[in-house]
Design a protein around this nucleic acid. Structure first.
Length: 642
DNA sequence: CTAGGGTTAG
């Protein structure tokens, strides 16, 4: 190893560095050039740009900074940087530089154009692509093989099949790449017939073309066609198998995906990620996590994409211990939390019930982006830390100059509704720059119910039914509100509406994690190995609640049950009660019981859990479908607003 | 000082 600081430059050095392609050598050449002021020579600085922009070295930041110091950089240098931007998924920067280039009255050539067009394709920027197309025709590159096939690919990727076809037909001679781009486009649009016809017309088909069809049909949800092609393929490679697995996962056919996965002799990281992401997106969180463990046992190294799926899966499982374990794995293995992984960690911790850990992660992120702010504000909202939520919202806008999105407004509205500032919440909804979504309107409606404001309740319900007529929760809350106001006629009107629209409730399901195992309970569940213990604990709970003076609140057992005793029984078997009974029997005294539930906690369960937290002197943390409830000493963190 | 356009996970 030599050091340029200690040796004077010799021709030998320069020759060595000219042929070298490592990052270290390049930075040494860079340092040398700066020190000796040779960087002023365009030939040397140009060489540096090309080295830094080389895919092997790929140091975009250095490439750009050297480039920026060159007076009147040549077209070739522009081409290098543009290509490097596209390679590094920063196509908007590539296009910005392309515009600079035109502004400098430099003309793009047949090297520039395919790169810029590819950048447009990456960004789905079909309008910009069309403008460039006009320029291409003016400059006379319309017949260039690479330029025109780039347009076929761009239009096909953007779903503009008419234009793709035109660009294809204009070509002198269609090579394999242009055929594949076109077929890929038709397949992804679901044009099975056209895609197959073209495929049959192709002069030669290699592996690539077959895989385009498998992937295209998978992506547009025609998984049975994808499988047909897959079975007919003369040869298959990893990409074909992965595309097929992905197709099954997208269509929700997890079993078929698993069968393929097991049949595979060779798998790569993409295979594992496709499976894990597939489990996660289909709500099979437990299996996603188990596969992740299998992967690590097999010494396969995960990447960011794997962790994105795994953190989401853990959020779904609400398993704090698994979350902590994965977080420490990430720290040990050098995963950076600055980008999307930071967002997911914050989300994971707040959804697993530890807002404290979420805050620690949030504070540790040096350059916070919108996603981080959203995650922490949503988290604080879920946990009912009201003042903090408001504080972070203001801080984000005023100190960091970040434009709030609909989600941020949602949190603010939620906070205002919780504290009874309903008019203010309503006026924020009316003045925010975007249309209110279901979540915001539900917050307002629930707030109106809890604070007995019928006018605002009806206002919110009216808008909700317009925005999302399928939201059953809206009718439930509205009916609760009328019931509380004693307007029984309106209550029955709402129930009629629900019946007419055919709403059926999902069965309630709660889960609790104990010693690394997730235990699931549905309403009236008797399948757990400890069922006897659980039901005798339920008996004990019922007696203690009775002596504490609890009267079951059956007003929310809405639809099908008429008999009063049956109503009470239904309540007693709600899934969260089973989970609490399990928790009281199994979780070590003094440790909190953490439960996750798929539906909103009902009124009666909420007041029962408050009482139980006092009676058994236990902290009980329940995550329902919208927020966390920290029950302690007979009260709840949501202050009875949820 | 460039060597280009088509398929798989997020």
């Amino acid at each position: 190893m030599y050091s340029l600081q200690q040796h004077s430059p010799s021709p030998l050095h320069l020759t060595l560095l000219k042929t070298s392609k490592t990052h270290l050598d390049t930075t040494q050449l860079h340092a040398f050039a700066v020190k000796t002021n040779l960087i002023q020579h365009t030939s040397l600085s140009s060489r540096l740009v090309s080295l830094y922009a080389d895919p092997e070295i790929n140091n975009l930041r250095y490439a750009r900074s050297v480039f920026d110091q060159i007076q009147d950089p040549s077209l070739v240098l522009h081409n290098l940087i543009i290509k490097c931007y596209v390679f590094n998924q920063q196509s908007h920067e590539a296009i910005a530089l392309f515009r600079d280039l035109l502004g400098k009255s430099l003309l793009p050539d047949n090297f520039t154009l395919p790169c810029v067009i590819k950048g447009c394709a990456r960004l789905n920027a079909v309008e910009e692509g069309k403008q460039i197309h006009g320029l291409v025709l003016k400059l006379g590159f319309g017949l260039d093989k690479f330029v025109s096939s780039s347009f076929v690919s761009l239009y096909a990727k953007c779903g503009e099949m008419g234009l793709a076809r035109k660009a294809f037909d204009v070509m002198d001679e269609n090579d394999l790449v242009s055929w594949n781009s076109l077929i890929d486009g038709y397949a992804k649009c679901g044009e099975v017939g056209v895609a197959m016809e073209l495929f049959d017309e192709m002069p030669e088909r290699d592996l690539f073309s077959w895989t385009c069809l498998v992937d295209g049909f998978s992506k547009c949800g025609k998984v049975e066609f994808a499988r047909e092609i897959f079975d007919r393929m003369p040869n298959k490679n990893l990409v074909s198998w992965n595309a097929m697995i992905n197709g099954y996962m997208k269509s929700g056919d997890i079993e078929s995906a698993r069968v393929l996965f097991n049949e595979m002799e060779v798998r790569n990281l993409i295979t594992w990620n496709a499976m894990i992401a597939g489990f996660e997106s289909n709500g099979r969180f437990k299996e996603a996590f188990e596969l992740f463990e299998t992967m690590l046992d097999g010494d396969i190294v995960p990447n960011d994409a794997t962790l994105v799926s795994i953190l989401s899966a853990i959020s779904g499982l609400a398993s704090l211990s698994k979350g902590r374990w994965v977080h420490s794995y990430m720290v040990k293995n050098g995963f950076l939390v600055h980008g999307v992984l930071g967002t997911l960690l914050i989300q994971m911790y707040s959804r697993c019930g530890s807002i404290e850990s979420a805050l620690i992660v949030f504070r540790s992120i040096p350059k916070k982006k919108v996603g981080h702010w959203t995650a922490i504000i949503v988290g604080l909202g879920m946990h009912g830390l009201v003042d903090d939520g408001r504080k972070y919202f203001d801080k984000m806008i005023n100190d960091y100059g970040i434009e709030p999105t609909v989600e941020h407004y949602g949190c603010l509205v939620d906070i205002l509704c919780r504290t009874g500032h309903l008019e203010e919440a309503k006026s924020i909804i009316e003045s925010m720059p975007m249309r209110p979504n279901t979540v915001i309107l539900m917050s307002l409606l629930s707030g109106a119910r809890n604070h007995g404001n019928k006018d605002i309740g009806e206002y919110a319900a009216h808008h909700l039914i317009n925005v999302a007529p399928d939201t059953s929760g809206c009718y439930v809350v509205l009916s609760n509100m009328y019931a509380a106001a004693g307007e029984w006629e309106k209550v029955s009107q709402v129930r009629e509406m629900m019946k007419k629209r055919g709403f059926k409730k999902d069965p309630g399901c709660s889960s609790i994690e104990h010693r690394g195992v997730v235990h699931e309970f549905i309403v009236g569940d008797k399948s757990h190995p400890q069922t006897n213990d659980i039901y005798s604990k339920l008996d004990e709970m019922r007696n203690k609640l009775k002596s504490a003076g609890h009267v079951p609140d059956t007003t929310q057992v809405l639809l099908c049950i008429e008999d009063e005793e049956e109503k009470e029984e239904e309540l007693e078997n709600h899934s969260e009660r089973l989970a609490i009974a399990f928790g009281l029997t199994n979780v070590e005294p003094g440790r909190p019981i953490r439960i996750m539930k798929n539906l909103r906690v009902c009124n009666d369960c909420h007041s029962v859990t408050k009482l139980l937290s006092g009676i058994y002197n236990r902290e009980i943390i329940v995550r329902d479908n919208s927020r966390f409830h920290h029950f302690k000493n007979g009260t709840c963190s949501c202050k009875d607003f949820w």
